[in-house]
């Protein structure tokens, strides 16, 4: 975006989205769990997790933070290079770890888990101007089964819960599948004059 221009947002806020944890079965019949990423706690053994703070029994099954970071690294190592967009995820485990260290924990993150493996990740990263940038990744082995739409809705629900008001993203002009997904969930195109298409949504 040109630095001198304010990014427009839709006037009307989007619907309320359900926030994680969420369980569903994807179009290929696989059970999928969506978890909010709760931060990386160095030195915490995943088998020695604290008891859930609330009465909700669902939180007991939550992905432990240590597992989540390692699971995300493993997912991005397996990522099909053809699915990379605008330089992310970066290639190679070391750069993947550096990138995840930089973006995780500062905003909101939701992970899609199938059989204990991360197969999807959606993230909101604060842009320092009161809004957040969104990106979503689904492993090529699990694309086309509806995981992306559930994952992005859950992330927006998490964002609403955490008080995020405005979200934007950029997407490559030729990526029709992604653009359709963003439209479906309520994003509107707000800029086509740069190399990528820009889209935005108002959460509240």
């Amino acid at each position: 975006m040109s630095p001198g221009r304010e990014r427009p947002y839709p006037d009307e806020p989007a619907e309320r989205f359900e926030r994680p944890p969420i369980s569903f079965t994807d179009a290929d019949g696989r059970p999928v769990e969506l978890y909010a990423y709760e931060g990386r706690r160095e030195g915490t053994d995943s088998r020695d997790r604290s008891p859930p703070s609330g009465p909700s029994p669902e939180s007991d099954g939550a992905f432990a933070p240590e597992d989540a970071f390692a699971a995300l690294v493993a997912m991005y190592v397996d990522f099909d290079p053809a699915d990379r967009a605008q330089g992310i995820p970066p290639p190679g485990e070391e750069r993947i770890r550096e990138w995840l260290d930089r973006i995780l924990g500062g905003g909101q993150d939701v992970i899609a888990v199938v059989d204990g493996r991360a197969v999807g990740h959606a993230t909101l990263v604060p842009d320092g101007k009161g809004a957040a940038e969104l990106a979503i990744f689904v492993l090529h082995t699990h694309q086309g089964a509806g995981i992306g739409s559930r994952l992005i809705a859950a992330l927006l629900g998490q964002g609403q819960q955490e008080g995020v008001e405005r979200v934007w993203l950029t997407v490559e002009r030729w990526n029709g599948v992604a653009i359709a997904l963003y439209h479906k969930v309520g994003f509107e195109t707000c800029g086509t004059d740069s190399f990528e298409i820009e889209m935005s949504i108002r959460l509240s």
């Binding site: 605008q86 330089g87 973006i103 990263v125 940038e133 990106a135 950029t170 740069s194």
Partner: peptide, 15 residues
């Protein structure tokens, strides 16, 4: 130039 998320940004001049 990178976005907050780490995406490469191609500005109007470069394009």
């Amino acid at each position: 130039a990178r976005s907050p998320l780490g995406k490469v940004e191609i500005d109007e001049i470069a394009e």
